[in-house]
Design a protein around this nucleic acid. Structure first.
Length: 478
DNA sequence: CGTCTTTGACCAGCGC
DNA sequence: GCGCTGGTCAAAGACG
């Protein structure tokens, strides 16, 4: 009898706990839906803003950029990072994105094959790659990029342009792209005409780097990759692996995968090029994220006043950035604008130990994200910083991988607008201390719960996996 | 047997 | 011009 009573008591306790968890879940859902609705309204607003600023931005960019002074050299500390002095947009996603697939190979190959239920965002068919748009201005980002790229007529391809680098190109046309000018067999196989060559060459200029805390050899990003090389790069004992996209026969997109020297659990994946095919859903989701950072970069360079500072090698610390996370950094040296979103560690510690941060600390101006940014743009990307700081929140991941949650249909438009707005704000506010976005107690509580409760973490891990890519998750479970 | 990874070699860019 | 470095190629081996 005592046993019965005890068991009943335990059962009741468990039920009560379940109820609490459910309530928590409901709260999270409500928060997410709020964020989604805010995002949608903001998206509309941002689109308007983009259109308004498009002409002005392009004109200003045309006027200003050619007279951009000789690019400031990046300090040695900044150059020591593994990616060298190319145009670089760096994203770091701190989720434990891979849920258990033993080998990167499995992740790479299987993740694109599933994905039966596609969200509207998935159908948006973002391209993961970066391309230098043939014209300046925000128009290169999403607005009518279908015409701009020509690489993927069926899909709106996000062309990301760095006006600073483009200005360099314009001023010094003889300067070859930093990335090799050698034609790969696949690229030169005759499938690409002159326009494609141009797009490809341009696209090789810009990159998107994603940092993920990941145990496997590569990050499951939804695409299929074939490894074609490996190198030991200077300054990093970990070898850098080179992958080529094999989703389509002549896809020019490549990626480099390397572990971070200071923390080998962190995987740095650098994407380069524009996909010439439709992306799997999971890849589209990732594309949305990389597009966000790249759009920030692009927008920054097209915002006249901001571009001036960007082109001078200034660093923007976007801590508490609503757009990309608590440790997002945009930095440029010469034609090397860099956005670093580092969610691989709680808080911003990683940011401050990164070479970019070191570079900033070495005397380069650092601008913090205005609090208004994170508070005013929580609609979509601007989840509360605590979400990001704890990197396991479904809401945060929903925004990190928003495409899979069906939030943005054309995320790149929002990102461009967000970036534009941010940079304008950053410029107007100046170097205010952007860490001032104080998390509400609710999110703090949630964050603590997330980080302290292992069971919750496991649930979140599953959510992360599903959000990262249903296909990848399905493959990982095999 | 086909596909993929590994790995040494080659090439181009860049700095000195 | 030379050496260093990053990026790519391609032959050989591994794997299913």
């Amino acid at each position: 009898m005592c046993y019965m009573l005890q068991e009943e008591r335990k059962l009741e306790e468990a039920k009560a706990e379940m109820g609490e968890v459910r309530e928590e879940n409901e709260r999270l859902k409500a928060m997410l839906s709020r964020i989604v609705s805010q995002y949608q309204s903001l998206q509309m607003h941002f689109l308007d803003v983009v259109k308004v600023h498009e002409h002005a931005a392009s004109k200003q960019a045309d006027n200003k950029l050619p007279v951009t002074p000789a690019p400031a050299k990046q300090p040695p500390g900044a150059a020591e990072d593994d990616d060298g002095p190319d145009d670089l947009v760096s994203l770091s996603l701190g989720s434990r994105a891979n849920s258990g697939g033993a080998r990167g190979k499995g992740h790479e190959r299987s993740s694109s094959s599933s994905g039966t239920a596609e969200t509207a965002a998935d159908e948006g068919q973002l391209s993961l790659g970066l391309g230098i748009a043939p014209r300046s201005g925000l128009s290169s980002v999403g607005v009518d990029d279908d015409k701009a790229t020509g690489a993927s007529p069926a899909a709106p391809v996000l062309n990301l342009s760095s006006d600073s680098s483009r200005a360099d190109d314009a001023a010094k046309p003889a300067q070859a792209p930093t990335v090799t000018t050698r034609k790969s067999p696949s690229a030169g196989a005759g499938a690409a005409d002159g326009a494609d060559d141009e797009v490809q060459q341009q696209s090789k200029k810009a990159r998107v780097s994603v940092r993920v805390k990941c145990d496997t050899a590569t990050m499951p990003d939804g695409c299929q990759w074939r490894k074609y090389g490996q190198k030991i790069s200077k300054g990093n004992p970990c070898p850098r692996a080179y992958y080529r996209c094999t989703v389509a026969p002549h896809c020019p997109v490549r990626k480099q995968v390397q572990r971070w020297a200071e923390d080998t659990s962190i995987l740095i994946t650098t994407y380069e090029g524009v996909h010439n095919h439709q992306l799997p859903p999971a890849a589209s989701a990732m594309a949305a994220r990389t597009s966000a950072a790249a759009a920030m970069l692009t927008s920054g360079s097209t915002t006249s006043s901001s571009s001036a500072s960007l082109a001078h090698g200034h660093h923007f610390t976007l801590a508490a950035a609503g757009l990309l996370g608590p440790t997002t950094m945009v930095s440029t040296a010469a034609s090397c604008p860099t956005v670093t979103l580092d969610l691989t560690a709680p808080g911003t510690s990683l940011l401050h130990t990164s070479p970019y941060a070191a570079a900033a600390a070495a005397g380069y101006e650092t601008k913090a994200m205005p609090a208004a940014w994170s508070s005013g743009y929580l609609g979509y990307g601007g989840a509360h910083p605590s979400y990001y700081a704890n990197k396991s929140s479904p809401a945060a991941l929903g925004q990190l991988f928003g495409g899979s949650l069906g939030v943005p249909s054309r995320p790149e438009q929002l990102y461009a607008a967000q970036a534009q707005s941010y940079l304008q704000r950053a410029n107007s506010v100046g170097g205010g201390s952007g860490h001032g976005a104080v998390p509400p107690a609710v999110t703090d509580t949630l964050a603590k719960a997330i980080t302290s409760d292992p069971s919750f973490q496991s649930v979140l891990a599953a959510a992360i996996t599903s959000v990262m890519g249903r296909g990848g998750a399905a493959a990982a479970q095999k």
